[in-house]
Design a protein around this nucleic acid. Structure first.
Length: 645
RNA sequence: GCCGACGUAGCUCAGCCGGUAGAGCAACUGAUUCGUAAUCAGUAGGUCGGGUGUUCGAUUCACCCCGUCGGCACCA
């Protein structure tokens, strides 16, 4: 005689065992219709689940996040069902829910084509319309293996073989299609008829291992209703519009070409952004007690062998032969920084020694890994290495974290996700050293009031690290900053300092970067701002345009005044209508536009507007300069609608 | 690197079944001097990513290479 407690606290006694569907029906026909699954004592179950004892029950509909997951998961099954009915020899593998949708991996003799995708989607719609009941059954592990082997689903059988013997597995069947699945699923395929779409085809390795054969993955998306689907598709389009590769082309910032894959050709405007960032970081780092240095691009292979890079990463290093010697383009700056450290004898009193370098590094990334500015073969890191004693780690970490958060705010990133990656299984150094290092980083974070999550086992083999991920304006996370503790490299490369007792001691080295790669960081900025960089970063900060030739000499006068004041200004004296000029510069994302006509010449003023169409009114030249300088000084710490946005 | 798609004028793209190419924007020239997101007219612009092959003939078909895109794997 179960007594059911509903989420609102009300209790419903039943005089017999009931299914979740029955309970939904007892509450209301509307709810019964909307019900997709249930939650019994916080465990997700099918509507057909029978409740025999007292329990807390919630009915899951498409209004719940869990309901949406059920829809997506069931839509993945619907996809597999459709594929099997169109291509009976295709084998099913796995089909999980992912962010905003789902995918399903198939093994099939020929590649699926975009045309197939259309047919599959149509078949899915047809199967959904048929409102086929989805039923759950169970088999023992061994029976399940036999079952899937018998129907020729060898991948499924292999999956089940990995499950411990003696477990009972659930199967879901809709018409002639049966799949292994934990569930829960929608009660009938009709619940899926509202809003799904297959989005793309891709290859994916079986079990995610590149040594295995490649399967064919079909991605799809599914939503509670058509409106949400459309909203999602619009969101994708919007994201595409802010693609830094498109913006880079449209704003003439940089380009790539075949002869130099993965290497950037910076155009004048892109380089203006780059230099602004570089100057800014340089100044920040110097204020923080770093010495800025530059080390060679080409270094004899012997150094990379000594540092260990050759063993680990030789396949990603470019090599050059000259004078019968083998050189490698540096893939990292750290071994060179150790050389600079070693070139002077250091006392413990000198520590910490901090070196910074805008280190241009080359990495022969695999061809398929390249992606605009985000993943290139030649990049510049805002790299830095701190040589210190163990008891200085925490203070140095704290100092770095403070600077990093502040720098991110200047760039307009206020949402930081911090992760601490701790000791991996394969590692160098004693547990005591790891204990100390991990604690130093954790304490530094806590000391700075920075919340963080742990990534157990994700640290580098030579030490733990902090990853700083920033979240952009459309919610995506990017790892940029990093702080790593390295006990091994200074030792390998023979770095030491003289300790208080005159003994030689190996310093600890901290690797750290704020933007990570300048190229990538600019890509992130472009997408974050959709090209509308804040005033301090904009390649052209102000365009001054005349209305008629009568105003052209005053326009030029203002332009040179601005230039003298360090403002990146352009004048547009073309014989075009003012509306046309404004449109063009707006599309070029120029933050500020000053219009000069007869009225302005008369009063020696400008009429100022922003690229967002905000009218700043009439300003004297002094007011104009003051407004611009104030906005530049604010950097990225302003709302999008204000002047510098 | 792997799977798939794509590569046509500066940009965005069209070009069915093989007969050496088109549009819009940009550019250039001329007219227009016009007050806050597109003035009008004209002109010019392409060994159709590279190579090989099939063919009387290839942007179109086949194969190879390069690059890009979407994923996978990788990301010191």
């Amino acid at each position: 005689m179960p007594v059911i407690t509903l989420p609102d606290g009300s209790r419903k006694p039943f005089d017999h065992a009931v299914t979740v569907a029955d309970i939904a029906a007892s509450i209301g026909t509307g709810l019964a219709r909307a019900a997709l699954a249930g939650k019994v004592n916080d465990k997700l179950v099918d509507l057909s689940f029978t409740v025999e004892h007292d329990a807390a029950i919630a009915i899951i509909t498409d209004k719940d996040a869990a309901g949406l997951e059920v829809i997506r998961h069931s839509t993945a099954h619907l996809l597999a069902h459709a594929v099997k009915s169109l291509f009976p020899t295709a084998q099913v593998t796995i089909g999980p829910v992912i962010e905003d949708g789902f995918y399903y991996d198939f093994a099939f003799t020929r590649p699926f084509t975009p045309d197939d995708l259309t047919h599959i989607e149509a078949k899915m719609a047809e199967l959904a319309k048929q409102d086929i009941p989805v039923s759950r059954s169970t088999l023992s592990r061994d029976e399940a293996i036999r079952y899937f082997r018998d129907i020729g689903e060898t991948y499924k059988a292999e999956i089940i073989e990995a499950i411990p013997a003696g477990e009972t597995l659930s199967l879901y069947t809709q018409a002639d299609f049966t799949d292994l699945c934990r569930g829960p699923h929608v009660p009938t395929t009709g619940k899926l008829a509202k809003a799904f779409k297959l989005t793309r085809l891709a290859g994916a390795y079986w079990r995610g291992d590149s040594r295995n054969e490649m399967l064919q993955r079909i991605y799809g998306t599914a939503w509670a209703d058509k409106k949400s689907l459309d909203a999602y598709l619009t969101r994708l389009e919007e994201a595409e519009k802010r693609d830094h590769r498109k913006i880079g082309k449209a704003l003439d910032l940089f380009h790539f070409q075949e002869e130099a894959p993965g290497m950037v050709f910076w155009h004048a405007d892109g380089w203006a952004i780059y230099q602004t960032i570089k100057k800014y970081i340089s100044q920040r780092v110097s204020a923080d007690g770093y010495e800025e240095i530059v080390t060679p691009q080409l270094v004899d292979l012997s150094l990379w062998k000594k540092s260990g890079h050759w063993d680990m990463f030789s396949n990603e290093m470019f090599t050059v032969e000259a004078d019968d010697r083998q050189f490698a383009l540096k893939p990292m700056n750290c071994p060179c920084h150790v050389q600079v450290f070693k070139d002077t004898l250091h006392s413990y009193r000198d520590l910490p020694v901090r070196y910074a370098e805008f280190g241009c590094v080359h990495r022969n990334e695999m061809s398929g890994a390249m992606h605009g500015l985000m993943r290139v073969r030649q990049l510049t890191q805002d790299d830095g290495h701190i040589f210190c004693m163990e008891n200085q780690i925490q203070a140095e970490a704290g100092r770095f974290i403070r600077t990093l958060s502040d720098v991110y705010r200047d760039f307009g990133f206020n949402d930081l996700v911090v992760r601490l990656a701790t000791r991996p299984e394969k590692r160098l150094g004693s547990d005591a050293i790891w204990d100390n290092a991990e604690k130093a980083l954790a304490d530094a974070l806590t000391g700075e009031g920075v919340p963080f999550e742990l990534l157990p086992g994700e640290g580098a083999f030579y030490g733990p690290k902090i990853e700083f991920h920033l979240r952009d304006s459309i919610g995506r996370q990017w790892q940029c900053g990093t702080l790593q503790i390295d006990y091994s490299q200074p030792d390998r490369l023979g770095a030491y300092y003289i300790a208080e007792d005159s003994s030689k001691q190996v310093p600890v080295m901290l690797h750290r970067a704020i933007t990570g790669s300048l190229e990538r960081f600019i890509g992130i900025l472009l997408e974050h701002y959709a090209g509308k960089l804040p005033l301090w970063l904009a390649p052209t900060q102000l365009v001054i345009m005349n209305i008629t030739d009568r105003a052209s000499s005053f326009t030029s006068e203002i332009a040179s005044l601005c230039k003298k004041n360090g403002i990146r200004v352009k004048s547009d004296l073309r014989n075009e209508k003012i509306g046309y000029k404004i449109r063009q510069h707006t599309l070029q994302c120029v933050p500020l536009m000053a219009v000069v006509g007869d009225r302005e010449v008369e009063t020696r003023s400008v009429s100022l507007r922003t690229r967002d169409g905000e009218d700043k009114g009439s300003l004297t030249l002094d007011q104009l300069l003051a407004l611009i300088n104030t906005a530049i000084a604010q950097k990225g710490r302003v709302a999008e609608t204000s002047v510098s946005a």
